[in-house]
Design a binder for these strands. Structure first.
Lengths: 348, 348
DNA sequence: CAAAGCGTCCAAAACGTTTTGGATTTGAGA
DNA sequence: TCTCAAATCCAAAACGTTTTGGACGCTTTG
């Protein structure tokens, strides 16, 4: 293991002071051209790489943004979180920032956030899965650390957030089903407390109301965002004496479970029962039948969130503007049946 | 923004020196019980969190492991990398380590690795996508930093690695096709240079050889691991005067492209042409038809890799044992056709 | 001729932590 | 009373960097 190359060793080798070496490398003007040349040559020769820690310690900046990652449950491996992280990572990289994934066992605990904030491990934080009353946001707002949340909140007034328009998305999907003639539409809602759950439900109700209909409370079931939960919820719905003709799931994963349940009862997805998902994960297009869903550009949202956070960090104070991204309805065979295959969007 | 809580502020608040505060918190025995109690109470009250940078700079551990993440191309969002990172993250969290995703623009550049190593930002590194001659591994081995690679190499003799047995996996899949009576089996191989490409190809050849067959070079095409590349490669293969009866793709993504190409020619996947994938991503089960593939437990491999690396870091020198994980053949309808649906493994 | 300006350079401080090498006090034993 | 060891504490150094506030010698300006 070779000895580390530092400003000190360069200073010793060139005969100048550490200060002059530092300023020569940084491009300050109070270094004579000949001195600068000598120092640059020596730095090149010894393959000098500045020690990030020394630099950061001095400047109180870590060139790092952090995301607290839930370790309980299969949250991370899901395409949703992964795509978000990827978007953030790409954008952070572009600005020369690293991305710290900090584990979090208990989602309700603030310990992980405290560690990051007071330990100065990160210059800014990204939040995900916001709640109406979110202690994390209250804490971060109070601590003054730059942060951006993916999702809105009611905890604090003026925070930077980016969100996909759940009202519009769910409304579009529901209207699509109404236009196809469905009147008994079931809705498998994500867990309560989460902000996006509320917006989605609002979009669902708005679409029905505008069509002069009221939602049947018996057709609204809460389930978590897993395939199994979707299967169970759909089974319950289909066992009713008056089963729904369409089932909307909380996300695509859940929708896959719903499709299984439908087939298990000998019914055809897209013909006997329409099924809708949410998120538009890549696999949704390749399901059998292809799944009607609402596409959210998660990767891009991650990029926007990172960009927003980096601006906050740079500005050091000014709050950045909230961003509401519009999702896109992808109508496919799981709701349109044979009409989809006859239509323009052939698989090949 | 409240003033930062440091050893200094705790020292000022309690009236002891910085040294004593540090040693009290670290649990040294040369601090009287009453003093320790006072200091711990004050630390608790002010919610002290050690500053990582200071600690790091001093020469201690960073409690962080790093993965260099490729930002070019859609590498990260793919389920493969995401699952690996998730496994690493969970295991790191269990040991109280954070996970640093360090961006890497140009995969051939060592800059990102140098930054991590010389900047002492991470106690250890994880590598992915190894090559036979891998400059990253040579550099890391030379620098003496603990690291574990997912995939083997020929660059350096004794390194810690974990890998899935590509020879066995590809061999099992090929044998499966041979047993179904296929004799003209095409193989769409991943890009050359990567270690796993070589092992997979070896498994393919071994299976054929043991059946007394030789591979037809015209049926082996190199393509990158994308859906489009699979489509293009399969189209080429199917246009031949003597088309293959089975096509094995480099991964599931590529296999999806192959399936599209098969259908585009009016052929039925699993009946007219058998299609095989690799990796066993969750979506593979829900494709139409369900995809025969070789399941690699990526999440668990991530966990094992992290555990291995953490052991290396702890031991500070001893090299950990290589681990070869056995993949599992998942035979489904894309090769077995109707036989699959009649068989035991019904979809529901 | 004194003052001011300019071009170069550098010592020292600061960031927050851990560790080294004592210093001081206390109490016991001689 | 004196010595010695244990118990308790702390000043200072070290990690590598950037920044502050000059110093020094020379030239130009008033």
């Amino acid at each position: 293991m070779p000895p580390p190359v530092t400003l000190k060793s360069l200073a010793a080798a060139t005969g100048f002071s550490i200060t002059t070496v530092s300023r020569a490398l940084a491009g300050y003007s109070d270094v004579s051209p000949s001195t600068r040349r000598l120092i640059l040559e020596e730095a090149e020769r010894q393959r000098y790489e500045p020690n990030l820690l020394g630099r950061l310690l001095q400047g109180q900046r870590s060139q790092t943004i952090a995301i607290v990652m839930p370790t309980s449950g299969p949250q991370f491996p899901d395409p949703f979180f992964a795509q978000f992280v990827a978007g953030v990572g790409v954008e952070a990289a572009h600005a020369g920032f690293d991305l710290l994934l900090s584990p979090q066992d208990d989602p309700s605990e603030l310990a992980a956030y405290r560690r990051l904030v007071t330990g100065r491990r990160a210059d800014g934080l990204l939040l995900i899965r916001t709640r109406a009353d979110d202690p994390r946001i209250r804490y971060l707002a109070e601590s003054g650390v730059p942060f951006v949340s993916f999702g809105r909140t009611e905890s604090v007034a003026h925070t930077a957030w980016i969100d996909a328009d759940g009202v519009a998305g769910q409304k579009a999907l529901t209207q699509h089903l109404l236009e196809l003639g469905h009147r008994r539409i079931a809705y498998i809602t994500p867990p309560g407390g989460l902000m996006f759950t509320r917006f989605r439900l609002q979009g669902f109700h708005e679409a029905l109301a505008e069509a002069g209909l009221a939602a049947d409370p018996a057709l609204i079931i809460e389930a978590d965002l897993s395939e199994q939960a979707g299967k169970d919820a759909a089974s319950l719905l289909l066992e009713r004496p008056d089963p729904p003709t369409a089932i909307v799931a909380g996300n695509d994963q859940t929708a896959i479970g719903v499709m299984h349940a439908v087939r298990a009862r000998g019914l055809r997805v897209g013909e006997d029962v329409a099924v809708g998902g949410y998120d538009g994960i890549p696999a949704s297009e390749h399901l059998h039948p292809p799944l009607t869903t609402v596409y959210q550009p998660i990767f891009e949202i991650g990029q926007l969130a990172a960009r927003s956070l980096l601006a906050l960090i740079k500005a050091q104070s000014a709050s950045s503007l909230p961003v509401l991204v519009q999702p896109e309805l992808l109508a496919r065979a799981s709701t349109m049946g044979a009409a989809y295959l006859r239509g323009g969007e052939a698989p090949d």
